Computed example of a mutant assay.
Amino acid sequence: MIPLSRARSLQALLRLPVWLWLGAFFLVPFVITLKISLSEPATAMPPYLPVLDWRGGAGDWSDFLQALNVENYVTLATDALYRDAALASVAYALAATIILAGIATPLAYAIARSPAGRQPLLVALVVVPFWTSFLIRVYAWIAILKPEGLLNLGLMRLGLIGQPLEILNTPVAVLIGLVYAYLPFMVLPLYAVLSRLDPALREAAADLGASPARVFRTVTLPLALPGLLAGAALCFIPMVGEFVIPDLLGGSETLMLGRVLWSEFFSNRDWPLASAVAILLVVLVVGPVVLFRDAAAEAASGEGSGREIPGREGAP
């Protein structure tokens, strides 16, 4: 039996690479970005002030710290442009996540209920879009959604519309692009959970008189909640900062934080304000991550407790 002190040392040693990775590729870049966000733009290289001189003494460090300010965050809080961009980013990501949940849940359920020999093929079909460049796939949607594109052409030939619909460069096009691009991220976690569910639970509920819809609603869906939460987090977090899809499909009127960040960094050369926008993005995704963690822990604890199987009134 391994002594307790040695076991703790081994656990700490195993965690060390994780902490080193997070420190090198998250904490250090975050601190640098935070420092730049507290600076002021300048016509220099780098294009911000103050710049810390590591060779300086205590006086230089004191001057450096005193020169930092929160003016960029005041701008984000008071300027309607950035407030509207933040709200629009969250709204687009939330709406797309809800649509993804509605599409991916029955799709993953159908794959999990398929014969075992077909499931690898069906999962591969979900993953196939990943084999093509993300940028090329978004450009393909331009050819589909534009007024003379494939979608309008097909609808007009079917007689469903009399003139082309204006879909490209609208919020609808952005939602279509987000749902298409992130659908596999929602399907795969759901499938991983649904494929491990015990079929006896559904059979027991059906034997007690529950309809298929009620079995799905009261047995399958609650047990699939961890996969649904994981998929929601995987989709919502990157969609908040999405740039390519709103830029190509949404047009100039679509305002999201990803586009604002690109504009401030590359067009305006305002690195401090762009860094403040990046910090705002981190803050916007921390909340969903915390909520996901708490909801996942609650769902996991709920799996261990007994669940009443729905059925006929008075069933033994």
Rank of each mutant, 00 (worst) to 15 (best):
F64A: 02
Q11H: 09
F134D: 08
S263Q: 15
Y73V: 09
A205Y: 15
L249G: 11
L284E: 01
I245N: 04
L225A: 08
L284S: 00
L13D: 01
A12V: 13
S37F: 02
V31L: 01
A24M: 05
M45P: 10
L87N: 09
R259G: 04
G154Q: 06
D84C: 06
A116V: 11
S305Q: 13
Y48W: 15
F30G: 10
S133K: 06
L27W: 02
I161E: 05
M239D: 03
L145I: 07
A96R: 05
L223M: 10
V138N: 01
A210M: 04
L273H: 08
R312A: 09
A297S: 11
A206D: 00
L14D: 00
A315L: 10
W271Y: 15
T33N: 01
V240M: 07
G162W: 08
A295M: 09
A213D: 02
L81W: 10
W21S: 01
V286I: 12
G59D: 15
R269E: 14
P212N: 09
D63S: 15
A233W: 11
P212A: 08
V28L: 07
D198G: 12
L188T: 07
L178E: 04
G23K: 05
S275L: 05
A24I: 05
P147Q: 06
G306W: 01
T78H: 03
L87Y: 06
T78R: 02
V18Q: 03
L125G: 02
A230H: 04
L153C: 03
W54H: 03
G159W: 15
L178T: 05
D53P: 13
G154L: 14
I32Q: 07
N69Q: 11
V138C: 03
R118A: 12
A276T: 05
V28K: 02
P226H: 05
A91K: 12
T220N: 13
R6L: 06
Y82C: 00
G227W: 13
P106G: 13
G57E: 15
L14G: 11
A140N: 01
D207S: 07
I245P: 08
A295T: 12
L121P: 00
I237S: 07
R217W: 14
V187F: 12
I167C: 05
Y180C: 05
R217V: 13
R157T: 12
L34I: 07
A108N: 08
R259W: 06
G159K: 06
Q163P: 07
I176M: 01
S37I: 09
A67Y: 12
V244I: 14
F216H: 11
R15F: 15
A24R: 12
A210D: 08
V18P: 08
A96H: 13
W61Y: 15
Y180S: 02
G117F: 10
D60H: 13
L225I: 13
V289C: 04
G314W: 04
L135Q: 11
D207T: 03
Q163F: 10
A181F: 12
T218K: 13
P272E: 14
G287A: 08
